[in-house]
Design a protein around this nucleic acid. Structure first.
Ligand SMILES: [Mn+2]
Ligand SMILES: [Mn+2]
Ligand SMILES: [Zn+2]
Ligand SMILES: [Zn+2]
Lengths: 138, 138
DNA sequence: TTATTAGTTTATAATCAGTCTAAAGTAGAA
DNA sequence: TTCTACTTTAGACTGATTATAAACTAATAA
């Protein structure tokens, strides 16, 4: 994917293709594999790997905008800071509670049987399975 | 359960039965049903329902101590503040992302099949299933 | 092109949950 | 009662996130 593709992608979804957004697209979507990151991770990554100082507020704005458009997911963990995910397929996670490392589990890998009916008047939006793991203490 | 039981419970687990801890025990464990709450919920509850002003720091200290002893659980959600749970059985949750309401799902209700092996050197500590729900938009 | 406008970026301040600190208080043991 | 370690507390502090409001810029019309 090249620069112009991101510009189109942004424009098509009603987001102005600003310099910052395009650079962030490159960082997030010009990769072999999907990955997990925090807002701070991304801000630092932009500076170091892309020589682009983007204000924290803009990183937040952009990630929230991208999330709304479905270009990234935000992952629910009981942690201090939240994680984002460029893997937007429905999937689950191993979560190392000590190192804060996240590892994807393909949705098809885990079978959820007998999901109970949601409370009256509510409907299911998404199911998150988090398998908390820790290093074996030898 | 009466006052003296909590004193014994605390003493037996190596926690001094202070006035504050005993009162918090009453608030948390002298109930018909288990429930979910935030640190702030509990602090306010102590003041209003138990006429006991307990400093926020102590509420945090106590909840973390109780968590370590396994008397409460902390629930992992992608929210700003974390939730505690007096239901310490292994169980799952419906979570209303709009109202922040939590509803228990008995562990036996959901069957998880084909749980993948954890990464080498790590072992599974706990599995959290959160079913995000929302009110039907009529 | 130029001018206009609405959307965007930015530094900075504000907020808010949670933690830290150090002094004052208290339970348990002697 | 006395001693000591544990506990509580107010208040300072941290760090993630959000709000603000001024400067900037992409899109559009003239
Ligand atoms: Mn967010
Ligand atoms: Mn905590
Ligand atoms: Zn993922
Ligand atoms: Zn619960």
């Amino acid at each position: 994917m090249k620069n112009q593709d991101f510009i189109n992608k942004l424009r098509n979804s009603g987001l102005r293709p600003t310099k910052q957004r395009i650079k962030i697209c490159e960082a997030l979507f010009n990769t072999e594999k999907t990955f997990h990151f925090t807002v701070n991770d991304l801000a630092k990554m932009m500076q170091k790997n892309f020589n682009e100082k983007i204000s924290l507020a803009t990183v937040y704005n952009t990630l929230h905008a991208f999330k709304k458009k479905g270009y990234v997911k935000e992952i629910s963990l009981g942690n201090d800071n939240s994680y984002f995910d460029t893997n937007i397929s429905s999937h689950h996670h191993f979560y190392d509670t000590k190192t804060n490392e996240l590892i994807d589990i393909d949705s098809s890998k885990i079978e959820l049987k007998n999901i109970p009916n949601p409370p009256k008047g509510k409907s299911i939006k998404e199911i998150d399975v988090v398998i908390n793991v820790e290093n074996d203490s030898q």
